[in-house]
């Protein structure tokens, strides 16, 4: 048995000898996978751990993810404890020192200021994140700041291609800035409009567009909607003049439809991340789709 094990290790060591020179990146969420495509499409290999139909709060530390983590040179995640239910376990089991700290560990929420930092952390208040709301991908200014930091990190880890990363970032920045201007003009009618949200995941988007959140289907963040709480929202939704009840593609939209049926306010499923609908093929499409759908609710 001992001999066999030894031979297996030797064999695997030979098989696994590093032949690929490309930087391997483990992206926790599709939005960061898409951003990496923009910033370094040809010079890196990206493994995206989750998809738009998964609730990233509760992903499991599956064996396949451990295997991917084992090979990564860089980890790109939202951070702010969004992945706390699985990422620490993956890191501990993967035995990959490159991504546990320092340069190989990139947390998007650490690159920007977060909103919703709770004054106190108490589970009675639901699944609150002490480091603030981690869903930063829906504010284009924050995305740009994250892109700048990520591009610099790529250049640091893969110095040979640093010029490519810089050039690709410059290109991305100009396209993104132009897109922001376009989105802001297009989304102007949304300013001041009120919405009811499913989970408190939209604060960055609403703040950017000047919209207001007047209620949440989850009585506490992370606690599934209850019928009593939903009933109490009927008046809030009507009186507050909500234009839509918004949820993410991965969420169960039944409670949204229930409330929509009783208030006449449309239930709107937004992609939330890249891959959340047909149009959200990349970060640009994600914003296009989100704004189109919100504008659609005004009609």
């Amino acid at each position: 048995m001992r001999k066999l094990l030894l031979w297996m290790i030797v064999l695997l060591g030979v098989l696994a000898a590093p032949v690929e020179a490309k930087l391997r990146v483990f992206a926790c969420e599709p939005e960061w996978g898409s951003l990496l495509e923009e910033l370094a499409a040809d010079t890196i290999d990206v493994d995206v751990a989750t998809n738009a139909l998964q609730d990233v709060h509760v992903v499991e530390a599956r064996p396949s993810l451990i295997a991917k983590m084992r090979k990564a040179d860089l980890l790109v995640c939202s951070g702010a404890q969004l992945e706390i239910g699985w990422l620490p376990q993956l890191l501990r089991q993967a035995g990959n020192a490159r991504v546990t700290s320092a340069a190989g560990n990139f947390m998007a929420a650490n690159q920007v200021t977060t909103l919703d930092r709770p004054a106190s952390v108490d589970r009675a208040a639901g699944d609150v994140h002490p480091d603030g709301n981690p869903h930063v991908q829906l504010d284009p200014y924050r995305v740009l700041a994250i892109a700048r930091a990520l591009s610099a990190r790529l250049g640091e880890l893969d110095a040979a291609n640093a010029a490519i990363y810089q050039q690709r970032f410059d290109d991305f920045e100009s396209r993104w800035q132009a897109a922001i201007t376009r989105w802001e003009i297009k989304a102007a009618p949304l300013k001041g409009k009120a919405v009811v949200v499913h989970h408190s995941a939209w604060i960055y988007l609403l703040q950017w567009l000047g919209m207001r959140e007047i209620g949440s289907l989850e009585p506490k963040p992370g606690v599934p909607p209850t019928s009593a709480h939903l009933s109490s929202l009927i008046d809030v939704t009507k009186a507050g003049g909500a234009v839509a009840i918004i949820s993410a593609a991965y969420q169960d939209s039944k409670p949204d439809e229930w409330l929509a049926g009783r208030t006449g306010v449309p239930a709107l499923v937004l992609p939330f991340t890249v891959g959340g609908d047909e149009q959200a093929k990349d970060l640009f499409g994600l914003y296009d789709s989100t704004i189109d759908r919100l504008l659609g609710a005004l009609k």
Binding site: P88, L91, S101, Y141, R142
Partner: peptide, 23 residues
């Protein structure tokens, strides 16, 4: 600059997930 993007702390670069796992 936009306050949202201004505050990039030095410590953020060495962001350590497991250390941030709990308060």
């Amino acid at each position: 600059p936009d306050p949202a993007v201004a505050e990039v702390s030095v410590t953020a670069k060495a962001g350590d997930v497991t250390a941030a796992a709990n308060q």
